[in-house]
Amino acid sequence: MEAFDTLVLILASTMRLTVPLLLAALAGLYSERAGVFDIGLEGKMLAGAFAAGATAAVTGSAWAGLGMAVVVAVALSLVHGFASITHRGNQIVSGVAINFVAAGLTALLGQAWFQQGGRTPQVSGDARFSPIVLPFTEEIAAVPILGPVYRSLLSGQNLLTWIAFLAVPLSFYVLYRTRFGLRLRAVGENPAAVDTAGISVTWLRYRAVIICGVLTGLAGTYLAIAQSANFVKDMSAGKGYIALAALIFAKWKPVPVMFACLLFGFLDAVAIRLQGTPVPFIGTVPVQIFQALPYVLTVILLAGFIGTAVPPKAGGVPYTKER
């Protein structure tokens, strides 16, 4: 029974750690399926987290924080779009630039406005997205297996967690069952064909990066005012890159993206759990192995040893209309 309780604890922690990865990876999914590579997920998430933390601290409203996070992340997305769609700049360079600007500005403004070493003040109550306790949690808590699972994994999750997991089937529907999704995927594979059909490549790609901005804004909001109670300097801590790895690991498909994020979240949860505690028969496992594992797995996948990851064909290539 003890092993079971530990498992439930690790799974609950997996859920919490997966949410920001999932939102960011889905954000990247829209952008990259439309042919715009985005290594700026990290920066947008960080900027969103700062906007959410700062706005929630000042206004006391989590919703205002959410709104501001989305506005800021979309603004950065539009900068990325302006550089890589309108001016056909290098998408990687633009993404790197956005990561730098976000890392610098959040810490600089955080220090200038709040004087707490780049943090925003702690918030509580309505300024955070609190856990939603589902009905009958206490009534069935005593039921073995079902009770603890219901209490720890389903009940007590906050709104953004629900949004993140509901965004998976929604993204599947949008990308594979709507006209917009078909066109979005087409523009990432063969923009010239889309253009010939009389559909604006530019506008389609801009819509894709805007959706990407909204989702990274949600991811940032989750970090700052759902998972924690304030923004801390560099709090995205490479999650944007892990999300990118998950996106590739999932071969740019929505449902596998969820499983990839759950796997990477699980590795993170296990790493936290195992810190300093020896595993039976193996001894102490260095926590760094778990930190490196998502990246190692992704490289092995890219090497073609776990199936093949075929990126969108026009990814990273700016579209030039025939002249």
Partner: peptide, 24 residues
């Protein structure tokens, strides 16, 4: 008030304008 993070901002802007938006 201007912490060292200002350098990171300037770096990012230089990469953005000298790199991604070089043809602006």
């Amino acid at each position: 008030t201007i912490s060292r993070d200002m350098i990171i901002v300037i770096q990012g802007l230089v990469i953005l304008f000298a790199g991604a938006l070089e043809h602006m």
